[in-house]
């Protein structure tokens, strides 16, 4: 190999490359930079010893400190549970009605319940439980399945017409679609239902149909039955839309709302907190 050429001006060696008369100086890398590079190499090797890294024939090296992201998570969760244990234990030991009656627990449950509600309940029942067509308002005192905090707790745990075995279930017959009533009878009973809340004049024929077909669940006076999830028809609150057309459609071919069971999705403390929260939204009984 030829002796490296020296640049006359700076006295440094050149790389020997030449492009159109321009030559490149062969300036060495700064010492500090090289040391950093060596340090990162040492770091990388040490890292693979301390943490899980290398594949083996039947698995992989677990590393010296037995780290795993799932294991870390379990530790993290256990630590959080520990730090909250004085509260969590009280929630686990108390029934929802006891929680609602205890000022300290109630305050705590309101904060926790609000977060649970926002993520899990608000998509249907809307912010602050104001509800919308097809999704009952939780902020008024019109309850389908009962407004006591225990009733709310049961509804949340097992859901309404959910796939849980203990779900609350009721099924209004499709009086029109299944031809249990003819069109005239449907119109009459709709008029009667409207009259219950003062929306129209009394309809004698409709009242007879109502007594035969509807009163068993909705009650003689149409005020509903919370044991059966039969809505109150004598107030101005309508689950599936107000007005003659909406009521008529519901008599013909009723919509049945579905609420999931939360017992397998949320832990019991969260369900208790959100039950108390819902109970406090304005309509709790």
């Amino acid at each position: 190999m030829a002796e490296p050429e020296k640049d006359a001006l700076s006295g440094r060696e050149t790389t020997g490359h030449e492009w159109d008369g321009l030559k490149e100086l062969n300036t060495p890398l700064p010492r500090w930079w090289l040391w950093v590079l060596y340090a990162t190499i040492v770091w990388a090797v040490a890292y693979t010893v301390v943490y899980p890294a290398w594949p083996t024939l039947s698995g992989y090296t677990k590393g010296m400190i037995d780290y795993s992201s799932r294991g870390e998570l379990a530790k993290n969760l256990a630590a959080v549970k520990q730090s909250r244990s004085s509260w969590i234990n009280r929630f686990e030991e108390s029934s929802v009605s006891e929680i609602a009656a205890d000022n300290d627990l109630l305050t705590y449950a309101m904060a926790g319940g609000r977060a649970v509600f926002a993520e899990n309940c608000a998509p249907c029942h809307a912010a602050a439980g104001s509800g919308s067509v097809g999704y009952p308002s939780l902020a008024d005192d019109d309850w389908l399945w009962g407004g006591k905090v225990d009733d709310i707790y049961t509804s949340i745990r097992y859901g309404i017409r959910s796939d849980h075995d203990d779900a609350r279930v009721s099924d209004m017959p499709a009086f029109g679609a299944d031809e249990l009533l003819n069109a005239q009878q449907v119109a009459d009973v709709t008029a009667h239902v409207m009259s219950l809340s003062g929306g129209s004049a009394a309809n004698a024929a409709g009242a007879t149909v109502f007594e035969d077909e509807c009163a068993a669940c909705h009650g003689e006076d149409g005020t509903g039955n919370r044991e059966l999830g039969a809505p109150n028809l004598a107030d101005a609150i309508w689950l599936n839309g107000s007005g003659v057309d909406a009521v008529n459609a519901q008599v013909k071919n009723p919509k049945h709302g579905v609420m999931p069971a939360w017992v397998d999705r949320l832990d019991d403390v969260s369900v208790k907190q959100v039950s108390v929260y819902v109970h406090s939204l304005g309509g709790g009984q």
Binding site: P123, C124, G134, S162, D163, G257, V258, M259, P260
Partner: peptide, 21 residues
């Protein structure tokens, strides 16, 4: 899966704002 009802998914797919403003 199972977090919302079929009705909710239907309304939500047709117009998400109808259920989640």
């Amino acid at each position: 899966g199972g977090k919302y009802s079929n009705d909710w998914h239907t309304a939500h797919m047709i117009n998400p704002r109808s259920v989640v403003p």
